Each structure stands twice: as structure tokens, then as C-alpha cells.
Measured scan of single mutants.
Amino acid sequence: MTGIVKWFNADKGFGFITPDDGSKDVFVHFSAIQNDGYKSLDEGQKVSFTIESGAKGPAAGNVTSL
């Protein structure tokens, strides 16, 4: 699925993605970002991701920028 990064705190390594389908915002951890180098996201960035079952509920996985 796709969405827009609502916010991401690079110091803490997590944030939230707002899915394009209008569903509830999804937690994203830096370890789910699939790019080389520094793993961070920018507010407003368009991303593709999967929904994984995290310890505290749904979380984004396999996050790639579009």
C-alpha cells in the first residue's frame, strides 16, 4: 500500500505514515526503511509499505520511497 509520511523523528528513529486509503495512521520504525545509508523519512514524503504485526499493534514494514 502507499501513503504519506505524517512525521518522522530521526533522533528517536520512528514516526507515522498516513495511508492513502484513509485508514488509521501506521507506526513506522527506522529498521523498516529499505534504503541504503541513513534510514530516515521526511514529512510529506510518498512511500510504499506493507502492514506488519508489531508488538504494540500494526506497524509499517518494507518501507520504500516513491
Results as ranks from 00 to 15, higher is better:
Ile33Cys: 04
Lys56Tyr: 14
Leu66Gly: 06
Phe16Trp: 10
Thr64Glu: 10
Gly3Pro: 01
Lys12Glu: 06
Leu66Trp: 06
Gln34Trp: 07
Ser31Thr: 13
Phe49Cys: 01
Thr2Gly: 05
Ile51Phe: 08
Asp11Pro: 07
Thr64Trp: 08
Ser53Asn: 14
Lys46Trp: 11
Asp36Lys: 12
Ser40Lys: 14
Gly13Asn: 03
Ser23Thr: 13
Asp25Trp: 04
Thr2Arg: 08
Lys12Leu: 14
Gln45Arg: 06
Ala60Asn: 01
Gly15Tyr: 02
Ala55Lys: 13
Asp21Val: 07
Phe14Tyr: 14
Asp11Ser: 14
Ser48Arg: 13
Asp21Trp: 07
Ser23Cys: 08
Thr18Gly: 05
Gln45Gly: 07
Gly3Ala: 02
Met1Pro: 05
Ala32Cys: 06
Asp42Trp: 14
Ala10Gln: 13
Ser65Phe: 14
Ser40Met: 12
Gly54Leu: 09
Asn62Ser: 10
Asn9Tyr: 06
Gly57Arg: 10
Ser31Ala: 06
Phe27Ile: 03
Phe30Thr: 07
Lys12Ala: 09
Leu66Val: 12
Leu41Phe: 05
Phe30Gln: 09
Ser53Val: 14
Phe27Trp: 07
Glu52Ser: 11
Phe27Leu: 04
Pro19Trp: 04
His29Phe: 08
His29Asp: 04
Gly15Ala: 02
Gln45Asn: 07
Ile33Phe: 06
Val26Asp: 00
Phe30Gly: 05
Ile4Met: 09
Met1Phe: 12
Ala59Gln: 15
Val47Ala: 02
Gly54Gln: 12
Gly57Phe: 07
Asp21Gly: 08
Lys12His: 10
Asp20Glu: 08
Lys24Gln: 13
Phe14Ile: 08
Asp25Lys: 04
Ile4Arg: 12
Lys56Pro: 08
Phe14Thr: 03
Ala55Ser: 13
Glu52Tyr: 13
Lys46Leu: 11
Val47Ile: 05
Asp42Glu: 15
Pro19Gly: 03
Pro19Glu: 02
Thr50Ile: 12
Gly15Asp: 00
Val63Ile: 05
Lys24Val: 12
Gly3His: 00
Ala10Met: 10
Glu52Lys: 11
Thr2Leu: 09
Gly44Gln: 04
Thr18Tyr: 07
Asn9Val: 04
Gly22Asn: 08
Gly54His: 13
Thr64Gln: 13
Asp25Ala: 07
Phe27Val: 03
Lys6Cys: 11
Phe49Glu: 00
Leu66Phe: 08
Ser48Lys: 12
Tyr38Cys: 15
Thr2Trp: 06
Trp7Lys: 04
Asp21Asn: 11
Glu52Asn: 11
Glu52Gln: 12
Val47Lys: 00
Tyr38His: 12
Gly54Met: 10
Val5Ile: 08
Gly37Asn: 10
Ile17Tyr: 00
Phe16Leu: 05
Lys24Asp: 12
Val5Cys: 05
Pro19Phe: 04
Tyr38Ala: 12
Lys24Leu: 10
Ser40Pro: 06
Gly13His: 04
Lys56Trp: 15
Trp7Tyr: 08
Gly22Ala: 06
Leu41Gln: 01
Phe8Cys: 02
Thr64Cys: 10
Pro19Ala: 04
Ile33Tyr: 04
Ser65Leu: 15
Asp36Cys: 15
Val5Thr: 03
Phe14Cys: 05
Ile17Trp: 00
Tyr38Met: 12
His29Ile: 04
Ser40Cys: 15
Ala60Thr: 03
Phe14Leu: 04
Ile33Ala: 03
Gln34Asn: 13
Gly61Ala: 15
Glu43Pro: 15
Phe16Glu: 03
Lys12Arg: 12
Ser53Leu: 15
Glu43Ile: 14
Ile51Val: 11
Asn35Leu: 12
Leu66Glu: 08
Phe49Asp: 00
Val63Arg: 01
Leu41His: 01
Gly13Phe: 03
Gln45Trp: 09
Ile17Val: 04
Lys12Cys: 11
Asp25Cys: 06
Pro58Gly: 06
Asp20Ile: 08
Ser31His: 07
Lys46Phe: 09
Asp25Gly: 04
Phe30Ser: 10
Asp20Asn: 08
Gln34Ala: 13
Ala60Pro: 01
Asp21Ile: 07
Asn9Ser: 11
Asn35Ser: 14
Trp7Asp: 02
Asn62Ala: 09
Ala10Ser: 13
Glu43Ala: 15
Lys46Glu: 07
Ala59Ile: 14
Thr18Ile: 15
Lys56Met: 11
Asp11Thr: 14
Ala59Pro: 02
Gly22Trp: 06
Thr2Asp: 04
Lys56Gln: 12
Lys12Thr: 06
Gly13Asp: 01
Val63Gly: 01
Thr50Glu: 09
Trp7Ser: 04
Val63Ala: 02
Glu52Arg: 10
Ala55Ile: 13
Lys6His: 10
Phe27Gly: 01
Ser23Leu: 06
Val47Tyr: 02
Val63Asp: 02
Ile17Phe: 01
Gly15Phe: 02
Gly15Glu: 00
Asp42Pro: 09
Met1Asn: 08
Lys46His: 13
Ala55Phe: 13
Lys39Glu: 05
Val47Pro: 00
Met1Thr: 09
Gly3Lys: 00
Asp21Phe: 07
Asp25Asn: 07
Val63Thr: 02
Met1Tyr: 12
His29Asn: 04
Lys12Met: 13
Pro58Glu: 08
Leu41Tyr: 03
Phe16Ala: 03
Phe8Lys: 01
Ile51Glu: 03
Ser40Ala: 11
Leu41Trp: 04
Lys24Pro: 14
Asn35His: 11
Lys46Pro: 09
His29Arg: 04
Lys56Cys: 13
Glu52Phe: 14
Gly61Lys: 15
Ile33Leu: 09
Phe16Cys: 04
Ser40His: 15
Ser31Tyr: 05
Val28Ser: 01
Asp42Ala: 13
Gly22Met: 07
Ile51Asn: 04
Gly44Met: 05
Phe14Ala: 02
Gly61Cys: 14
Lys12Gly: 05
Val28Met: 05
Phe14Gln: 03
Phe49Gln: 00
Tyr38Thr: 11
